[in-house]
Amino acid sequence: MTFAVDIRGVWHTFAGTHGTPTLEDVSLSVRAGERLGILGPNGGGKSTLLRLVLGLLPLQRGEITVCGVSPSKARRDGLIGYVPQRPEMEMAMPLTAREVLAQGVTWRLAPWRRVPATLAAQVERTIDLVGARDFADKPVGSLSGGQVQRVLIGRALVGQPRILVLDEPMVGVDAAGQRQFASLLAEIHRTTGVTMLTVTHDLRAIVAGSDQVACLARRLHSHGSPKGLTPAVLAELFSHDVAGLMGELAGMHVHAHGPGETCPDGPSHRREHGQEHGQGHGPGCSHAPREGGGA
């Protein structure tokens, strides 16, 4: 059975950490078309796992496949769309929202080629999909946090990837923007059926926009439905502020178990969930390299 993302027994240790692993025997899988949220505290290994899935870090131990191929190949073939955290970008660049969004496909064009009409049309369709029409011609540096996120999601989607990876997507977006953003992601998922992998420490983002939640703090603490986020799991995960987190959960009308109760989709769930329900290599994960000239 081939999953959209399949992670098996992954360990990762950074140099200078005296052998303490950042990731310890992490196994989970994501079916095609599924929305997986990876929740965990800062320093819990979320970004490391994400970088391994993207093929940006060398795999030390374990196995990861993305649509049945290695992360590096999936990345090169344009199977993964990536939405980064904003602080990494040079917002002073004199680029419009449309130009940034188009970068997702135009960088693959040969230098001598103009942007073909089909690609230009794809860019325009994506602008509409992410609701960026009103500010498409504005400089990206002048946009609000929510508008920039729409542009970055558009850039990730414009190449029609099989998997959309979002790194802390709610950072820098205000509360109203977060609600709109959650609706946007739901709409994109409904329209495109793209597999989504969201890494965050924001509980609201996870509960609002995930079919499955993986709780990661070096080890995988649970992997299952958002309903499985019990106080026990959250306390184990975050080690603090469980009452506040549970208040947020209650406010979002999500079933929460009492202290000490176990979750039916809890720690024992892990890989088995995917294997029970997985429908195999869905249409959203057919593997075909992208077009584009090799410049």
Binding site: L54, L56, R75, R76, D77, G78, I80, Y82, P84, E88, M89, E90, M93, L95, V100, Q103, G104, T106, W107, L109, P111, L152, R155, G159, V165, A295
Partner: peptide, 19 residues
């Protein structure tokens, strides 16, 4: 190399993630 340079200059980490 204008297209690659612009993408790289704007967002190097994403440029790598895009392949």
């Amino acid at each position: 190399h204008r297209r690659r340079l612009l993408f790289w200059a704007f967002d190097e980490e994403s440029a790598r993630a895009f392949g």
